[in-house]
Design a protein around this nucleic acid. Sequence first.
DNA 1: TGGCAAAGATTGAAGTAGTCAAAGATTGGA
DNA 2: TCCAATCTTTGACTACTTCAATCTTTGCCA
Lengths: 156, 156
Amino acid sequence: MDARAKGGRKAAAPPTSQDLWPLVIEFTLSQRAWWIGLCTEFDLTAMQGHTLRMLDPKKPVAMSALADSLVCDASNVTGIVDKLESRGLIERKGAEGDRRIKMLAVTEKGRRLREQLGARTMAPPAAVAALSADSRRRLAEILRAILAERSADRMA
Amino acid sequence: MDARAKGGRKAAAPPTSQDLWPLVIEFTLSQRAWWIGLCTEFDLTAMQGHTLRMLDPKKPVAMSALADSLVCDASNVTGIVDKLESRGLIERKGAEGDRRIKMLAVTEKGRRLREQLGARTMAPPAAVAALSADSRRRLAEILRAILAERSADRMA
DNA sequence: TGGCAAAGATTGAAGTAGTCAAAGATTGGA
DNA sequence: TCCAATCTTTGACTACTTCAATCTTTGCCA
């Protein structure tokens, strides 16, 4: 709305990076509500949804690895996994060589739910589907660059 | 990493919208950790940060309006506002004509903190600053289109 | 004008997430 | 064998979330 107030003509002057970035921020922050709503449809919390999204049915991972993926404390993962396991969506399995480790495997039931969630998540909005091949390539490059920059920051 | 595994040559074939959208999702979900980290630097939780971000120092809003902005329950706002108020960052004020309403005003201390947070939030990553004017315009158009689509969904 | 429904904010209860510190189990190397 | 390191869990505490219930105030209307 601010954008329109400032002059939302169809093809306005190119925004400066100072103007563009707030739009990116607004966009990403607005995704929060969308993701929560989507997960709720599947009776999942946002975090449970993230967790299911991260787990690859074909490749079980350790709890600690999941904690890294979710960028949260290992102790936190215990509770989240508890809930998903009690619903029969995933299960803990002992690791081959190391009995300290619990590997997380997606059950068949979990796999089906995960697939449905994924289908809804990945359905591109019409605005994306309508992009030209060139626009898509550019957007992909930009997003990858920012992602790389961000994760470099995290390492530092 | 999957992207690279699949063939991350510098100027690859344009991604299909089926390929692009997951990247957008990955991007936005990754912002969660970034936002939490940023807010933590200012001793704010993510939600308190959102709240301060939403409040315009020049234009107080009602609690209920804030609840709408944050897409959360009104009862939730009470607690969040309590904490920010106890730190002297915002304050409740009675509305002119309606004594039911509490208007939220940003204090001078809050305004300064908000400004610092905003400066950090809005600092465009190098990847964005480096974009051509044309790329910036395209990206802005895309994001606005998706935002509009999403909010239309919410209304429906 | 007196009464009542609706609106705005708060409270309380219950559940989910998040951190940190400490403990238990297991491993691997000195 | 012993001991430090690793992986997971537990416990205590705070924050966020929703829902139902409450309280005040407002606005309508009979």
